[in-house]
Design a protein around this nucleic acid. Structure first.
Lengths: 205, 205
DNA sequence: GTCTATAACGGGATAGAC
DNA sequence: GTCTATCCCGTTATAGAC
């Protein structure tokens, strides 16, 4: 008890710190085992792979975000606007210190198949369901499939904005600024809310 | 001459095929050299690294897409609608056989810093510039920075839709279908075009 | 100049002893 | 649960054939 936690905890703590500082590719398992003062094989014993270790840390970050999402949605009252719903959905993600989340998001996007099985069903599907319900209620004429598609598109806007957050100001020669995070969220929400209010596609079911 | 092309071409052909089938991580350089019947070091001679080899294949795919984008934009006449512009921008990407492009896009998104230096400035910046001009002309009241932001958001919609193309129908229990590629493009264009027509954000410069 | 052969090193993963 | 030893892969470098 006077120690610094068991092997598994020491691995998780060290890994989270190093991943945040140097990214996934920039952190070797040997870096982690050195920092955590454990044997290399201990990682493959407690977690199955570097991937699974990453997933464990992903979950650590997702849960507080989801908590905040539900709180904001609740706070918007019984009949929230499309903007309020999408703000509750996107804001907590985009407000997080991006450095920690960017490698996670990049990882998820570049291998959705893997991610769906391990993380999506458990940690994101319930959130999606709740927000789809809210959006359907706020915009009852929109066919259910179209609500799903448009929330999907909104996730694309959100993740892309975060992944390119550091780079985009450089690409645009400083025209586009990301220092005001609130303004950024408002800008993105404005865009996707307008997308949601578009008339449904002709072939929509 | 009676051979199957020179070493460099054989590497590119084999790599493209294997990357498309098994992804980047699922394809070792040794897989490629075996399939191409060349020596391992030939890859590091003709390309500098696995990363650079991937970039070379990225470029192979980007250029025909860009050609098609410009053709569609031209075909829309001197005063294209926002829908026509965005359709020309997104359609050629989304119409490509996704299997080949998905690993490329995932790779780009998960490491924008690297990609910007090697591919963006040369192969994507000119396209971006041309389409920003067209959009600014079609929607003159929108501040320049807002046009950039909204095109950025549109890229997010496009890439996210492609990356999750295979998975999304499963997640939604088949509610959202991607078999009709034209309908998918139309759906996405409708969404982002509505986003473009949103009033500019208050703090917009 | 172009390409092959080979060696050396760091990194992820696993088997099996303890 | 822990650790040693080992394997395969990606990368780099180099000597040298053609």
């Amino acid at each position: 008890m006077s120690e610094k936690g068991d092997t598994k905890s020491r691995i998780l703590d060290a890994a989270e710190k190093l991943f945040g500082m140097n990214g996934f590719d920039g952190t070797s398992l040997r870096d982690i085992t050195t920092a955590a003062d454990v044997n290399l094989a201990a990682i493959n014993y407690h977690f199955q792979s570097k991937d699974s270790l990453i997933d464990a840390i992903v979950v650590r970050h997702i849960e507080p975000v989801n908590k905040k999402r539900f709180e904001l949605l609740e706070a918007a009252g019984p009949d929230p606007s499309v903007e309020q719903i999408l703000g509750a959905f996107m804001g907590p993600v985009m407000q997080v210190k991006a450095d920690a989340l960017v490698p996670l998001i990049g990882r998820i996007l570049s291998n959705p198949e893997l991610f769906v099985e391990r993380v999506f069903h458990k940690h994101l599907a319930p959130v999606s369901q709740r927000f789809v319900e809210a959006l359907s209620k706020a915009w009852p004429d929109l066919p259910p499939s179209e609500v799903l598609w448009r929330l999907h598109f909104s996730v694309g806007v959100m993740t892309h904005t975060m992944l390119w957050g550091r780079i985009f100001p450089k690409i645009t020669n400083g025209v586009c600024d990301i220092s005001d995070r609130d303004a950024l969220v408002e800008r993105a929400v404005r865009f996707v809310a307008a997308g949601f209010r578009a008339p449904a596609s002709k072939g929509s079911d």
